[in-house]
């Protein structure tokens, strides 16, 4: 296991801002922070594509924009395709160095947008795709997505019949495309996130970052706990931080404190209905998934000299 990121000390945090205040995120929004960090990593020569998501609203209504880079709002399922289109056009205009960022939520990535994302990834389009994952359709009022964790409450998975089945493993889907770079990131580790976005930007081809994005209303947490709860997600191994190179070579970036999942679950109202047995079940799954991740990280990659 490599733990090359000392996220608290790898400062300075870049000071240039590509977002302007006044945008329409909820109190304590993780998604707005992820955009802010990502843009700091990419800089001004960036074009951003935003499919339907909280960010369709956060960015500001017409005739306003709270971003200092050009953005194109696009239909829910089209982030991969739209980013491909922008990429093609920029290349044709002799601007291959301009970054193309697709910035999509979990619904737009795990569910409706999976097809166009898969298309773009299979073509290995030179784009950076960031999924800010708040684990449900938050923009429409907290309906479950395939990124919703097992047994979580949402408005379509009520506490009496919570979400069935585990959260989809999007990284596994993307690594299945053998794209050059995949990573998970967590808003609680901004410098790690920035380092990963920078790495994605330096990598030619499709790069994918799955960034955990706490949502105070959707997770039923008090807004000031946003970062704290996100941090616990990693420390409980619910959301490990790792990178995958060429779909083969796994690197765990951060050794979790290995806290019990209950520490993470009990902070959130969306899990308040869980019984001890439920929590034990989730713990088992988390432990199992972690074991798989550990094993993968110890595998030799297919191409030895990549």
């Amino acid at each position: 296991m490599t733990t090359h990121q000392d996220s608290f000390t790898d400062k300075p945090y870049p000071q240039e801002e590509y977002l302007q205040s006044g945008y329409l995120s909820c109190q304590g929004c993780g998604g707005s922070m992820i955009m802010r960090h990502a843009l700091k990593a990419l800089g001004p020569d960036t074009v951003c594509v935003i499919p339907a998501s909280c960010w369709s609203i956060i960015a500001g209504n017409w005739p306003y924009s709270s971003l200092n880079i050009p953005i194109m709002h696009t239909a829910f399922e089209t982030a991969g395709a739209a980013a491909s289109g922008v990429r093609a056009a920029l290349d044709l205009k002799g601007k291959p160095e301009t970054h193309v960022l697709a910035f999509a939520g979990d619904g737009g990535t795990f569910d409706i947008g999976l097809q166009s994302l898969s298309g773009a990834a299979e073509r290995n389009e030179n784009i950076i795709y960031i999924c800010y994952d708040n684990e449900a359709y938050m923009n429409t009022g907290i309906q479950r997505s395939s990124a919703t964790p097992e047994m979580a409450w949402t408005t379509t998975t009520p506490a009496t019949f919570p979400k069935v089945g585990p959260k989809k493993n999007i990284i596994q889907i993307l690594t299945g495309h053998k794209i050059p770079y995949c990573a998970t990131a967590n808003v609680a580790w901004p410098m790690d996130l920035i380092a990963k976005v920078r790495r994605a930007a330096e990598t030619k081809g499709t790069t994918f970052i799955h960034a955990l994005s706490p949502c105070p209303p959707g997770w039923k947490i008090s807004s000031e706990k946003s970062i704290e709860v996100a941090r616990l997600a990693t420390h409980t191994k619910v959301f490990p931080l790792y990178e995958v190179i060429n779909g083969e070579s796994y690197h765990i970036n951060f050794e979790p404190k290995n806290l019990p999942v209950e520490a993470y679950l009990s902070m959130q109202g969306r899990f308040s209905h869980l019984s001890k047995a439920d929590i034990a079940h989730i713990q088992q799954r988390v432990d199992y998934e972690w074991k798989i991740l550990l094993q993968r990280s110890m595998m030799e990659p297919f191409h030895m000299n990549m």
Binding site: V47, V49, T74, E77, A82, G85, V86, A88, A89, K93
Partner: peptide, 9 residues
């Protein structure tokens, strides 16, 4: 979607 994006570019 791609054509819309490229045309927008």
């Amino acid at each position: 979607a791609s054509v819309i994006a490229s045309e927008t570019t």
